[in-house]
Design a protein around this nucleic acid. Structure first.
Lengths: 190, 190
DNA sequence: CGAATTTCTTGAAGTAGTTCAAGTTTTTAC
DNA sequence: GTAAAAACTTGAACTACTTCAAGAAATTCG
């Protein structure tokens, strides 16, 4: 049931059997229905989510009242608002299930205790976080150097199944252009 | 001499005296001259830099041959290409000193050994990396929701000394608009 | 199933930015 | 201190995208 998380952890570190037991006894699985929020703007985010199945997006509502997706999380990704989580300040973001989703939700206090009991988890989270940061650096690069059309094709080439999986207007805003323009790109009218 | 780093580490974790000694004996200070590179596109990045004094920027050369600054690092920041570092793949970026800069440069092999000898450093790097990731999430938000003029004023309000410190064209590209447009914003001609 | 809702498409008009080219000012380096 | 290089400014022409409005298609759900 928590196998995807253990598999992911074991890509980076080795856990003792006793640590596996400890971890297993602490975790709980939650189900989030499509469109349900696990975080809303203004709330303090004190939970970190590991996605077992489904998809969660981080989005904001911009000054024109439109939703803008900033990030997607899918299977085997951690997602949270790290700034709100670490600094204990109100979040600027929404976290919402794009599909019916199953997550392991870990409260900050629970995770802090786990990290003290299983110090090698610090290493796991350090590596995962640095790798995710590296991916974000590339994302900034793509946003800065590619045209809207290039960004669409690049994303579509790398994640074709994902493009089928979520509404196009979410992908459009994630790639920083309008849903209408995406429609025109897809139709070859640009 | 390494005090800024120890001060920074001690904001997040407690080190034993023996660990301080160990760390101190491992570190070396390097000086990087203005405009000198510590990483060039295509190289594999196997070093992580802590900036004691000065400024380093991460930039790319876009398809039109123009430099585009993606990130700045100043005093008390760690900077590297995390994707190249972790995945051992050629970097997409340049890392260049914007001013004469002093850094603690730690080789990956040295850092790996240190992390084994001083496990609590895992915790330090985990926290720093997650916080930096949180800051990057906000950066994406600003890029997505503010106009060029808003981004300029926001940045100028938050980092007025920094805006004085580095060439304007680097800030313009960091904020994702042209140097000419920045000139017009500053002159109030927009 | 059928109604309601959500998502996608299309064209026309508008605009926030870029690009180019040339001149001016500031900084660097011998 | 002065020549060269780097950084900044300005205006005019252009363009990659947005916005709006309306209709069509697909999906959801009682």
């Amino acid at each position: 049931m928590y196998k995807p998380l253990f598999d992911h952890i074991e890509k980076f570190i080795v856990l003792e059997p006793s640590e596996i037991d400890k971890l297993e006894s602490t975790l709980t699985l939650s189900k989030i229905k499509k469109k349900e929020h696990v975080l809303e703007e203004g709330q303090i985010c004190s939970t970190i989510y590991f996605i077992i199945k489904g998809c969660i997006r981080q989005y904001i509502i911009n000054s024109k009242g439109a939703e803008q997706t900033l990030q997607f999380g899918i299977e085997n990704w951690w997602i949270t608002d790290y700034l709100s989580y670490h600094n204990h300040i109100p979040s600027s973001f929404y976290l919402q299930a794009v599909e019916n989703t199953e997550v392991i939700a870990i409260e900050k206090t629970v995770l802090e205790a786990l990290l003290i009991e299983i110090p090698s988890l610090e290493r796991y989270f350090r590596i995962v976080s640095q790798k995710t940061f590296g991916a974000m650096q590339m994302r900034i690069k793509f946003l800065f150097t590619m045209s809207a059309e290039e960004r669409y094709h690049h994303f579509n080439d790398h994640f074709p199944e994902f493009v089928q999986r979520v509404p196009q207007y979410m992908i459009a805003s994630y790639l920083d252009f309008s849903a209408e323009f995406m429609s025109k790109i897809r139709a070859g009218k640009v």
